[in-house]
Structure formats: C-alpha cells, structure tokens
C-alpha cells in the first residue's frame, strides 16, 4: 500500500459522498456535499503535484532556493486560494439558503421548483 493509493481512494470517497449529497432533496445536505466536493478537489490537486514528505517549499535562511526535495509550491498556492474561495462560496450559499427557506417555507429543493412562478 502506498500513500498515493490511499490518498487516491480518499479522493474517490470524498467525490462520491459529496456528489451523492449534492443530488439530495434537502438543501442543507446539498451544502454539505458542496463542502465535501471542494475538499475533494483540493486533495486531488495536492495528490497530482507529486508528494514529498515533510519539506515545505521554504528557502532556509541565507539559501537562494528551497531544498530540491521540497514540496510543490504552485499546487499549494492554488489550493490555498481554493480553500478560501470555497469558504466564500459556502458563506454565500448558506446566506442564500437561509433566505430562501424563510421565503418559501420549505427546505425541499423539489418543492421550491414547483413553487417557482412560470416566467
């Protein structure tokens, strides 16, 4: 068993559970699914940049560059922004959910669709 294999399985599980939750009728479950899929995508990017154990991409004091065995900084930059963006999106989605449920009186996505007036 290698780290890559186990991490790949974790990616698969996160995607599967996230997608399953996003397909449910209850709106809160959709939001939890959204969060899980965000985490899954971050982990996928992290796995795609080759894994290096223990050495962050930080140059030691006085050195011109990080040691050659350091982890991939670009993927980390990508994931860092992705984490924060996911948080922003989730906050927005939570506010939207809160307001929608109060307006329609239901947390059932199928009922919300039916109550939508015809354009």
């Amino acid at each position: 068993m290698t780290v890559e294999a186990l991490l790949s399985v974790a990616v698969g599980v996160l995607f599967a559970t996230g997608l399953y939750l996003m397909l449910r009728r209850t709106i809160v479950r959709l939001l939890i699914g959204l969060s899980l899929i965000g985490n899954a995508a971050n982990l996928l990017i992290f796995v795609a940049a080759s894994l290096r154990r223990g050495v962050p991409p930080i140059a030691p004091e006085g050195a011109a560059a990080p040691p050659p065995e350091a982890a991939d900084p670009l993927a980390q930059a990508l994931i860092l922004t992705a984490i924060v963006i996911s948080f922003g999106v989730l906050g927005f989605a939570l506010a939207l959910t809160d307001r929608t449920v109060q307006a329609t009186g239901t947390d059932d996505l199928d009922q919300m669709t039916e109550e939508e007036p015809e354009p």
């Binding site: 790949s8 698969g12 995607f15 599967a16 997608l19």
Partner: peptide, 13 residues
C-alpha cells in the same frame, strides 16, 4: 456517485 468516485480515484492515482 459511486461510479464517479471510482473514476476520480483512478484519475488521482
């Protein structure tokens, strides 16, 4: 969802 998960796991690997 399970199928997509398997696919993503394969992709990651």
């Amino acid at each position: 969802a399970g199928m997509v998960g398997c696919l993503m796991a394969f992709l990651a690997f």
